[in-house]
Write a protein that binds this DNA or RNA. Structure first.
Length: 397
RNA sequence: GCGGCCGUAGCUCAGGUGGUUAGAGCACCAGACUGUGGCUCUGGGGGUCGCGGGUUCAAGUCCCGUCGGCCGCCCCA
């Protein structure tokens, strides 16, 4: 009988790695608090319809990457592949009043072929600015994404582009399709994308770099172009390592206006994007709410943890050892006394020699060892040993 | 979903052309050192060789399938 293991692309995260997940979460939580965010937890299971309408029916996510199935009532349900749709759904469902800043943290699911830094269950921290418009909102959105990464000490590059407003995006898509129709030197994938989603041809690995397509900036309105210019300028002024990438397009249908992507320089190109987002001015209305402009981003925590070089700080450990089994109860009493004082403390319950207990204390990194023996017990005291200097002193309870 | 590389102890890996009870280092446990950790020495526990078939007198080694990992695509955080 074989052992039971995790499913492909799913994994256990434990020990120091999981501690880092929490550390990353903590930094994002603290920084987003400065932007006056509130937090929201939405369900992992949602109706299929939600993602068909938001992410886009033609996107690969909906076509083949969702964990979708029928529940016992025959409803089409899906393990959420991303966070924005659920948050916007909640915003509408509860009649929340814009402007509203909502942040979330949790697992997302996509049935992709796994690789390092890319799993079928992965974790995202996301932020949605619902009911915000104007270029300063774009700047705030990108700044709020960059700042936590900077705080974590991660070396990044911020790539931005604009897709123009909904109308511009449509006109540009049409122009791009016409431009591409004349060419028969495209790869097979791009020949398909040319029809279904021409914008995606731009970030094709093969064709993207060698094509010389019309620039979106020639299709935007004067106002859109000016807002984009001011956004870039302001971000530079604020010290964000920002660069325009005219080939940057987002995969999800709901994006309009400014889009951006943050790459960690330390990671291989294929998995270097640690955070991405942009403006989605039509999504709220598409999901049945009142027309409301919005901006959002999501950070890939698994990948951020991969490049997070910082440590995890914990309070010093007190380890209680006893010289004989008869003193186990007393040791247990001292142990909990220490905990009541707010100290991180632990002990072993198995019968072990004092030497073995000491060895264990050393192994788990105890800063202090609390020794209780007949002598200490008689006086109602314990012996405190400094594991760095080896010095000992008697302490009364 | 497509292509490639890989899968031996908890971890990192040895195990020429198939040949007796599968090894090392680290880690773990114990003792030397019965009221004191790190260093050293000695001993010990731990492996259905990912799983399932096949070829063979004989398979960790060869073949097929399958599961899983990694890398490149697709796509994406």
């Amino acid at each position: 009988m074989g052992r039971i293991t995790t499913l492909r692309g799913f994994r256990d995260i434990y020990g120091e790695e999981w501690e880092k997940f929490w550390k990353v979460y903590e930094v994002f939580r603290e920084v987003l608090d400065l932007f006056n965010f509130t937090w929201i937890e939405t369900p992992i299971l949602e109706r299929l319809e939600l993602f068909v309408r938001s992410v886009g029916e033609e996107t690969d996510i909906v076509q083949k990457q969702m964990f979708a199935f029928k529940d016992r009532g025959g409803r089409e349900v899906v393990m959420r592949p991303e966070g924005t749709a659920g948050v916007v759904r909640a915003f509408i469902e509860h009649g929340m009043a814009p402007p509203k800043k909502l942040a979330y943290f949790g697992p997302m699911f996509r049935a992709e072929r796994p690789q390092k830094g890319r799993y079928r269950q992965f974790y995202q921290i996301g932020a949605e600015f619902i009911g915000y418009s104007g270029y300063l909102s774009d700047v705030e959105g990108i700044w709020s994404a960059y700042l936590p990464l900077k705080t974590l000490g991660i070396d990044v590059e911020v790539l931005v582009n604009t897709l123009g407003g909904a109308e511009t995006k449509r006109r540009y898509s049409r122009a791009l399709r016409e431009y591409l129709t004349d060419r028969d030197d495209l790869c097979d994938d791009c020949k398909r994308r040319r029809e279904t989603n021409p914008l995606r041809v731009l970030d094709c690995k093969i064709d993207g770099p060698r094509l010389n397509p019309p620039d979106i900036l020639d299709f935007t309105t004067d106002e859109e172009r000016e807002n984009f210019r001011k956004t870039l300028e302001k971000l530079k002024e604020m010290g964000v390592p920002v660069r325009r990438d005219p080939n940057l397009v987002r995969g999800l249908d709901y994006y309009t206006g400014v889009v951006f992507e943050i790459k960690a320089k330390e990671l291989e190109a294929a998995q270097s994007t640690v955070l991405a987002g942009g403006r989605y001015d039509t999504l709220v209305a598409d999901l049945g709410g009142k027309p409301t402009p919005a901006f959002g981003w999501a950070a890939g925590v698994d990948r951020i943890v991969l490049v997070y070089g910082g440590g995890i700080e914990r309070r010093p450990l007190y380890f209680v050892v006893r010289t004989s089994e008869d003193l186990k109860e007393y040791a247990f009493f001292v142990l909990n006394k220490l905990r009541e004082e707010g100290k991180r403390a632990d002990m072993l319950y198995e019968k072990r020699s004092l030497r073995a207990q000491m060895r264990y204390a050393n192994k788990v990194g105890a800063r202090w060892v609390v020794i209780v023996g007949e002598e200490e017990y008689g006086k109602g005291m314990y012996r405190l040993k400094d594991m760095e200097t080896g010095e000992e002193s008697l302490i009364s309870l």
